[in-house]
């Protein structure tokens, strides 16, 4: 993001805060692809669309917390990051949920960029945790398949997904924003 983009989005949001619909529509229209890219790098493909919509709704609900005298980028990044961590946490709570059959990988170039930030983060986990998260959450294997592939029991697969994602969420929350 360049500061010029920040400025434009900031001005659009300032207009939206005054209740002007046209700048707001343009802002949301431009934010959507940005968010698709943001979450595409950080979440399993099947979760990206949900995360984008949830974040757009959060931006709407919390638009009064944007300070029009400051840059828009950090504000947006703070909200997107919060929603990302929240989702990793939710994933940890639903460790056993498998990906739906149809991996909703649509037009955005997610086959190339798919979740690479998340993949890089997995390297910081214990190998047993990282492996099952990759298999179940990113590659779409079932719990049973992941268990057969790794030699971990099914319940251990679930525990490792739960602990690994929970750990990631905590680490991310603790560190200052590096994006």
């Amino acid at each position: 993001m360049t500061s010029a983009t920040d400025d434009i989005w900031g001005r659009l949001m300032a207009a939206a805060q005054r209740g002007e619909a046209a700048p707001y529509r343009r802002l949301l229209g431009e934010l959507r692809p940005w968010l698709v890219r943001y979450f595409g790098r950080r979440l399993p493909p099947s979760q990206v669309e949900d995360a984008v919509q949830e974040t757009l709704m959060a931006i709407h609900a919390k638009r009064h917390t944007y300070d029009p005298d400051r840059l828009f980028g950090p504000w947006l990044a703070g909200i997107a990051r919060y929603k990302w961590i929240d989702r990793l946490r939710g994933q940890a709570r639903h460790a056993a949920d498998e990906l739906p059959e149809s991996l909703a990988v649509d037009d955005h170039e997610s086959s190339v960029t798919s979740a690479h930030v998340l993949t890089a983060l997995l390297a910081t986990l214990k190998p047993a945790q990282a492996e099952v998260i990759r298999l179940v959450k990113l590659d779409g294997l079932s719990i049973e398949e992941a268990a057969a592939r790794t030699g971990q029991s099914e319940s251990l697969v679930k525990v490792n997904i739960h602990r690994g994602l929970g750990h990631l969420a905590r680490v991310l929350e603790a560190q200052a924003d590096a994006d």
Binding site: Q17, Y24, L28, L56, H64, T65
Partner: peptide, 20 residues
Amino acid sequence: HRADPLIDALVADLAPVRPR
């Protein structure tokens, strides 16, 4: 922009707010 029902709904819901 692709027609987007969510964005339509959010724009329709827009009311002036006072920045905190």
